[in-house]
Write a protein that binds this DNA or RNA. Structure first.
Length: 303
DNA sequence: GTTCCCGTGTGAGCTCGAGG
DNA sequence: CCTCGAGCTCACACGGGAAC
């Protein structure tokens, strides 16, 4: 353990370092060095305090250093805020230049303005994957996702609207294949699909992190459906075979593969897949195509 | 009847690769 | 380099169904 004099000496050195930092520019490496030094001093100080070996004068010195640290903290915060402001202003200016003299503002509703290539879908994807069995956020949840997404966007003009969140979920359900899966394996019954998702999740095991998806919560269902599931206590433990008794091993394998593809498409980004739609149409020629995408695909492949 | 939400159909901007 | 088509994505309009 250090002597009282050694502690005082270290505190004075530390104070000197802090004063230098306050008087000059602090970069990331200097900041890291200061943080390390702070930890060392704090550790030594608390050890001495525990043993009651600190004099009043040393305690006062400690308080003064602590005050300097706080000052430095404010200064760093100010520096960072200023840097962020400069960065944001530079980005906006660059965007204006790149847009060129004919560039239009995002107001006005023309079609050229509707598309936002920088749509930040991270939070929406996360929510979707965590509720893959029932990806229908409530109004409150959509507003929360909206707030989380917009908190990540510093440029106010780029912030999302509530309707964009709604549209994203509609389009993602459709394009990831979730809606087709619902029709195909649950006959449009969302409650059954959630049960199926739970069954797949139970059989697959692991965690959300290893699977990259979760079935979601019963609370997401309408009250009536929730009650009907809860009344059947074994439903969450049901097996895929019980839920889909008509499917053989091959069909169950195909179903599980399609389910993991849905998760992948949501995780990486939903893509239109012309080849697979054509396959689907060829497989079931008697079923009229339900989606515009089918028609678009066919129009492209068979002009 | 009204309101809200969802699904479907479709338009349109953008990117990218192939071909001239 | 330019053009063109395919694919991807966002957005809007509209209709249907459920809840009130």
């Amino acid at each position: 353990m250090l002597t009282q004099e050694q502690i005082r000496q270290k505190l004075l050195e530390f104070e000197c370092t802090l004063l230098n930092a306050l008087a000059s520019e602090v970069d990331e490496s200097y900041y890291a060095q200061l943080r390390q030094l702070t930890e060392t001093v704090r550790h030594e100080f608390s050890m001495q305090q525990e043993h009651g070996t600190l004099t009043n004068a040393t305690l006062q010195l400690g308080a003064r250093v602590s005050e300097r640290l706080e000052q430095l903290g404010h200064l760093l915060h100010e520096q960072r805020t200023q840097m962020q402001r400069i960065h944001s202003a530079a980005n906006m200016e660059l965007a204006t230049i790149l847009r060129g003299p004919t560039g239009q503002s995002s107001e006005g509703g023309s079609c050229s303005d509707r598309r936002d290539p920088a749509l930040n879908a991270k939070h929406m994807r996360n929510w979707f994957l965590r509720n893959l069995g029932h990806p229908f956020p409530s109004r409150e949840e959509k507003e929360m996702i909206l707030a989380e997404t917009n908190a990540c966007i510093r440029d106010r003009s780029m912030r999302l609207r509530y309707s964009q969140i709604v549209l994203w979920f509609i389009n993602t359900r459709r394009r990831s294949g979730w809606t087709s899966f619902l029709r195909c394996y649950a006959r449009g019954d969302k409650t059954k699909l959630l049960e199926l998702a739970w069954a797949i999740q139970n059989e697959e095991g692991g965690t959300h992190e290893t699977r990259h998806w979760s079935a979601g919560n019963l609370r997401d269902l309408p009250a009536g459906s929730r009650r009907s599931i809860q009344s059947d206590t074994s439903s969450a433990q049901r097996h895929i075979r019980t839920l889909l008794p008509n499917l053989n091993d091959d069909a169950i394998f195909t179903m599980r593969r399609e389910w993991s593809r849905i998760a992948d498409r949501v995780r990486i980004g939903a893509k239109e897949r012309v080849g697979e739609w054509v396959e689907e149409v060829i497989r079931t020629p008697s079923v009229p195509s339900a989606s515009s995408s089918h028609r678009r695909a066919l129009r492209r492949v068979m002009p």
